[in-house]
Amino acid sequence: MQKKVTLVVFSSELDKALAAFNIAIGAASAGMEVSMFFTFWGLDIIKRSEGRIRSQGIMRRMLNRMNRGGSKRLRLSKFHMMGPGTWMMKRLMKDVKFPQIEELMAMAKEMGVKFIACTTSMGIMGIGKEAFIPEVDSFAGVATYLAEAEEAKVNLFI
């Protein structure tokens, strides 16, 4: 049976997202089947960057305005400094020809990595399917994650 890797992507920081996709690409390159479960803040990574995100109710509308998400808006967990820190890190990555997050996501997708969005987090935050990039394969819950994780030797929570 094909070896499996499951990644729970809970965080939305750019640096953590980079690490998650780096591992996913490495595993896929070694012929492993990779599933990435995006949950809670991690959903920000797979939100589309363009357009408005619609939600119901004042609290959810406020939350989604203050926490818009989308790969272009991810911030470093350290030295974001309201923008220039993250800008600089992206620049440093470019200097050494390291792909930007969008390119890593595209590579992962091309290699068959599965993107799964957590429907519970979507429900709590009031985010619909239309808020996400089309590369998301499915919308599911913890049982789907566990069924995959049980068969995987590598399980990470990022």
């Binding site: 490495g26 390159s29 050494v96 020809k97 390291f98 792909p99």
Partner: peptide, 13 residues
């Protein structure tokens, strides 16, 4: 000039 995971990913391809 390329860093991990690119050499491995490209070699696999």
């Amino acid at each position: 000039g390329l860093y991990c995971p690119l050499p491995i990913a490209q070699a696999a391809k």
